[in-house]
Computed example of a mutant assay.
Amino acid sequence: MRRLCGIWLAVAALSAQADATVAVCYNYGCAERAQVVFADDELEAADARLRQAGSAAEERALLAGVLGELYRISGERSPVGADRAGNLGDWGVHGRMDCIDHATSTTALLELLAARGSLRYHKVLAPARRSRFLFQHFAAVIEELAPPAPLAEPVKVPDHVGLLLFFCDDPGVFADIPPPPVPPPGNPGAQFAVDSWFVNNGEPAVVLPLADWLNGDGPNVQ
Results as ranks from 00 to 15, higher is better:
Asn220Asp: 14
Glu153Gly: 06
Val36Tyr: 00
Ile73Gly: 03
Ala45His: 13
Glu59Ala: 10
Phe198Gly: 01
Ala13Tyr: 11
Leu70Ser: 01
Val66Met: 02
Val66Lys: 01
Tyr26Asp: 05
Ala211Lys: 11
Ala175Glu: 15
Asp195Gly: 08
Arg2Phe: 04
Asn200Ile: 06
Leu110Ala: 02
Gly68Asp: 06
Ser78Arg: 07
Tyr26Ser: 06
Val66Ile: 05
Tyr26Pro: 07
Thr104Arg: 03
Ala57His: 08
Trp91Gln: 14
Ala53Arg: 00
Met1Leu: 13
Arg120Ala: 14
Phe138Met: 00
Asp159Glu: 15
Leu62Met: 09
Pro127Asp: 01
Pro209His: 04
Val155Thr: 15
Leu208Tyr: 04
Arg96Ile: 00
Leu145Val: 07
Phe174Leu: 15
Gly65Cys: 03
Leu145Cys: 07
Glu44Cys: 04
Gly6Tyr: 10
Gly216Asn: 02
Leu210Asp: 01
Val155Arg: 13
Ala190Pro: 01
Trp8Glu: 14
Asp169His: 14
Ala149Ser: 09
Gly162Ser: 12
Ala114Val: 07
Lys156Gly: 04
Asp169Tyr: 07
Pro178Trp: 12
Asn27Arg: 05
Glu59Gln: 04
Glu144Pro: 03
His102Asp: 05
Asn200Cys: 05
Val22Pro: 03
Tyr26Leu: 12
Asn27Gly: 03
Ile177Ala: 14
Glu44Gln: 09
Asp83Arg: 03
Leu119Trp: 00
Ser15Val: 12
Arg3Trp: 03
Cys99Asp: 05
Phe38Trp: 03
Phe167Ser: 15
Arg3Asn: 02
Pro188His: 10
Ala128His: 10
Cys30Tyr: 05
Gly202Gln: 08
Gln35Ser: 11
Gly218Lys: 02
Ile142Pro: 00
Ser55His: 08
Trp8Pro: 02
Asn215Pro: 05
Asn201Thr: 10
Leu145Trp: 02
Glu111Asp: 14
Asp19Asn: 08
Val141Arg: 02
Ala128Arg: 09
Leu62Lys: 02
Ala20Ile: 08
Val157Ala: 12
Lys123Arg: 15
Asp83Ile: 05
Gly54Ser: 10
Asp170Arg: 11
Asn87Glu: 04
Ala61Met: 13
Val37Pro: 07
Ala193Val: 03
Pro154Ala: 11
Leu165Ile: 11
His160Arg: 14
Asp169Gln: 13
Ala18Met: 13
Arg116Asp: 05
Ser74Leu: 05
Pro219Gly: 05
Trp197His: 11
Arg84Lys: 15
Ile142Lys: 06
Asn27Gln: 13
Ala205Asn: 10
Ser78Pro: 08
Asp83Glu: 10
Pro148Arg: 04
Arg120Gly: 13
Arg33Cys: 02
Phe138Val: 02
Asn215Phe: 06
Ala16Arg: 07
His137Ala: 01
Gly75Asn: 08
Gly92Leu: 11
Asn27Ile: 07
Ala34Gly: 03
Val66Tyr: 01
Leu214His: 05
Gly218Ala: 09
Phe174Tyr: 15
Trp8Ser: 15
Arg2Glu: 10
Glu42Gly: 06
Val36Trp: 00
Met1Glu: 10
Glu42Ile: 03
